[in-house]
Design a protein around this nucleic acid. Structure first.
Length: 548
RNA sequence: GCGCCUGUAGCUCAGCUGGAUAGAGCAGCGGACUUCUAAUCCGCAGGUCAGGGGUUCGAAUCCCUUCAGGCGUACCA
């Protein structure tokens, strides 16, 4: 719709002022309803090049545009805005798309579809997922859904840090617990994993292995413990994610990078391009060439590679797999890492914008109005599992997606659990359920379900009805913008507004009235609202219940 | 010290990449169920968009600066 209006404005501009090059015409939504349905500020932008009063330009344009059948009204207002009003019939026409496209309304084909990878969660398999991971999971998953909706090919990936120091510590933690279970009186170091789950894993391992574990030499036993623990923890992580409705296409092992020699190969590649150099007995990536504060070590004096080296290899691998766009979802505390990673991408000959990093800020849990204190070290963190058991997947998702991901989130557990009007999840779901209830009533009364062709749009004369139709017509654009900006929260706000408008309508206007023409028009509109709420919730990974 | 992010109603936050009189939700006050679900709705009140400069027809939005808070500044992961 916007495009149509833009096109007609551009055409008129070319007719009126062929001598100047027209700027890109912005068509916006006015701040207030009384200004019409759409607005443009071209007249003000043209004032300088044309050396004419913007209102005069606006007048001339408006006169011409009035003849366009699309508009029921064109007005000049304020300093030179041109405001357009469309007839209810035009808005009603848009509902045809909702009906025809159904569950795919809001989805589209992309003119330049790209192969995109979204990598998220990627928590170390050293313990259960906590709330922070939950937020990352909700955001990453919803982003993937959004990007698919606008026509890209998307793969979701989880990067497993299954090698290195923290794996050894994990193995040793389990080993020590196993020894303790065998009755050995040995201390458990503070820098080891404290959680009770370590003891459980040790127990299980002892049952399976018996005393075999202690016949091995310690190093081998620790390795075995580490492996067993990682795979068990990973299984638990997968289960949590599964219950959260998050699906990954690939699980990528860090260890595999070493097994395939990719770490060495990637560093060699960068070296051949002149971005890696030896200095002070170590090997450095010259990230200052890309605006980073300092160069970064990739191979230490000891010969061990750094975590950064793995990350270089991992991203090297990602792009070799043919992704046009790579999106990394990281905890916000890693933001300092972005410049060097972008530098790597550039050094490898890609556009740094082909890597986008979405940062996830902290989640503050509130219970009884008080902050729940969490510390990973002390093992007092709240797990995603606990959240799911407490408030359920829908509420958790909604709360995680409610805010911009890079701003801290207060997650009120009591509120999320409440089945009351204060809980925003239910607000949206309830709107959907209410429409289902209307459908149920219609079925009981033998009222047929109307199709677009059977409905007379001119019955929908109420301002609230026009408002709803406008809102529905805007849905594809909201999806598109949320996807492009990588900001799912925009969709959350949209759904909240749409639901609010519907609740308002519902409370003032009866749908199933005696007048069958009117009833079917309203019923049809309500069903379109239902469809859009459902589609929107799907993109957020939230269910749309029929009954509540 | 340097870098990044944040600062909008009592609280939690939007503000569509520069537009018209800055919006929601909670909390506060006052109202609405013989009706398709009151998990809802209606009304009232609430603001120096942290402060100060600048850019222009026009700034919460862009630039500079001050202040306040958070995070990051490893041959850790």
């Amino acid at each position: 719709m916007k495009e149509q209006i833009r096109a007609s404005i551009e055409k008129t501009l070319a007719e009126l002022y062929p001598e100047i090059q027209a700027p890109t015409v912005d068509v916006d939504y006015p701040s207030q309803e009384r200004f019409g349905d759409y607005t443009t500020n071209v007249a003000m932008q043209l004032a300088r090049p044309l050396r004419t009063n913007p209102r005069q330009i606006a007048q001339a344009l408006a006169e011409k545009l009035k003849q366009t059948p699309l508009f029921s009204d064109v007005e000049v207002a304020g300093p030179g805005f041109i405001n357009f009003t469309l007839s209810t019939e035009i808005w009603f026409e848009r509902l045809k798309d909702v009906e025809q496209e159904g569950e795919r309304y809001g989805w589209r084909k992309h003119p330049l579809p790209r192969k995109i990878q979204v990598e998220f969660v990627s928590a170390n398999p050293t313990g259960p997922l906590h709330v922070g991971h939950g937020r990352g999971a909700a955001v990453g998953d919803s982003l993937a859904r959004l990007l698919r909706a606008i026509g890209h090919t998307v793969e979701c990936e989880y990067y497993i840090n299954d090698i290195g120091r923290q794996m050894r510590v994990l193995g040793h933690s389990v080993y020590l617990r196993a020894c303790q279970l065998k009755g050995e009186d040995i201390p458990f170091p503070a820098d080891h994993y404290q959680g009770e789950y370590i003891v459980d894993i040790a127990k299980k391992l002892l049952e399976k292995e018996g005393d075999n574990l202690f016949t091995l030499d310690e190093e081998e036993a620790v390795a075995r413990c580490g492996k067993a623990a990682a795979s068990e923890i990973l299984e638990a992580i997968k289960k949590d994610l599964d219950d959260f409705g998050v699906v990954f296409d690939h699980w990528f092992s860090e260890a595999s990078l070493f097994e395939k020699g990719e770490v060495t190969a990637a560093i060699e590649d960068l070296k051949s391009r002149g971005y890696v150099a030896d200095r002070d007995g170590a090997t450095w990536f010259l990230s200052t060439k890309f605006g980073d504060e300092k160069d970064r070590v990739v191979v230490r004096q000891t010969g061990e590679t750094t975590y950064f080296a793995s990350d270089i290899a991992y991203h090297w691998d990602k792009f070799r797999r043919g992704f046009d766009q790579v999106i990394d979802v990281w905890g916000a505390d890693h933001h300092g890492y972005i410049p060097r990673m972008k530098g790597v991408i550039q050094a490898l000959g890609y556009d740094p914008d082909q890597l986008k990093v979405v940062l996830i800020q902290l989640v503050n849990l509130l219970r009884g109005g008080q902050r729940v204190s969490m510390s990973t070290r002390g093992g007092t963190f709240v797990t995603l599992r606990e959240i799911l058991d407490d408030v359920g997947s829908d509420a958790a998702r909604y709360f995680f997606l409610m805010r911009r991901s890079d701003s801290p989130l207060d997650f009120d557990l009591d509120l999320a659990r409440q089945r009351s009007n204060e809980n925003p999840v239910f607000y949206v779901q309830y709107a959907h359920a209410r429409i289902c209830s209307i459908e149920e009533k219609a079925r009981e009364a033998g009222v047929p379900t109307p199709t677009f062709g059977q409905v007379t749009g001119s019955y929908l004369t109420l301002p609230e009805e026009k408002k709803l139709m406008k809102r529905l017509a805007r849905f594809p654009e909201v999806v598109s913008q949320a996807a492009q900006a990588l900001e799912p929260h925009r969709l959350v706000y949209y759904l909240h507004e749409l639901s609010g408008e519907f609740h308002h309508y519902y409370n003032h206007t009866r749908v199933l009235v005696d007048d069958s023409g009117l009833a079917s028009a309203r019923f049809f509109l309500a069903r379109c609202v239902k469809q859009v709420i459902r589609n929107g919730l799907t993109l957020l990974g939230i269910s749309a219940p029929q009954k509540m």
